[in-house]
C-alpha cells in the first residue's frame, strides 16, 4: 500500500544521506521525496512516499524514529490529509493543438507559465492522482520535457507535525 510519511528532522548536513541510506540499506522503497526547511530554520521537513505492507511500514516509521536526527514521524495514511505535488510540462504547441492544450490546462486548473513559438510550458499542482491524470491527458499532444516534484503533505484540521 502507498503511504505518505512526513518526517521532521534536524536541519543538519548529512541528515538526508542518513534517511536515504536507511531506505536503500534496508530495502525500503522511496517513490518520491521532498525536503525543505520549516519556519524554524533549525528543522527540515521531509515528505516521503513509500510502499509496503503493514509490517514494512511499521519498520519504516520505527527505523526513521530511531535515527538520532529525526524529531518526529507521521504516517498520514490513517488520517485525512492534504497532499500536493507540482509538475512542469513542456508541450509541443502546433496551431492545431493549442486550443486543446489550453482546455486541458483549464480543466486541471493549471497555468501556462512559459510560451514560445513552438512550445507551451504548463504548471499543474495537486495530489498524485490529479498530476498523473493531467500528464496522461496531455501525453498524446506531445510532451517534450517533464519535471515533477516530490509530494508534500499536511494534516487537515488542527493537527500539526511540529
Amino acid at each position: 500500500m502507498r503511504h505518505t510519511i512526513s518526517v521532521l528532522v534536524e536541519n543538519k548536513f548529512g541528515v538526508l544521506a542518513r534517511i536515504s541510506g536507511l531506505f536503500s540499506g534496508r530495502g525500503f522503497n522511496i517513490e518520491s521525496l521532498s525536503v525543505a526547511p520549516t519556519l524554524d530554520l533549525t528543522t527540515s521537513r521531509m515528505t516521503i512516499i513509500t510502499r509496503g505492507d503493514d509490517a514494512i511500514i511499521e519498520q519504516v516509521t520505527k527505523q526513521l524514529n530511531k535515527l538520532i536526527d529525526v524529531i518526529k514521524v507521521i504516517d498520514f495514511s490513517d488520517e485525512d490529509f492534504i497532499e500536493r505535488g507540482i509538475v512542469l510540462v513542456k508541450v509541443n504547441s502546433e496551431p492545431n493543438n493549442r486550443a486543446e492544450i489550453l482546455r486541458m490546462t483549464e480543466i486541471f486548473r493549471g497555468k501556462v507559465v512559459d510560451v514560445s513559438t513552438k512550445t507551451y510550458t504548463i504548471e499543474v499542482t495537486g495530489a498524485e492522482a490529479k498530476v498523473s491524470a493531467f500528464v496522461e491527458m496531455i501525453k498524446p499532444l506531445g510532451i517534450i520535457e517533464i519535471a515533477r516534484s516530490g509530494k508534500i503533505a499536511m494534516s487537515r484540521g488542527k493537527k500539526t507535525l511540529g
Binding site: A55, E58, Q59, K62, Q63, K66
Partner: peptide, 8 residues
C-alpha cells in the same frame, strides 16, 4: 529498549 527490534 529498541522499538525496531519488536515485531521485526
Amino acid at each position: 529498549v529498541d522499538p525496531t527490534a519488536i515485531s521485526k
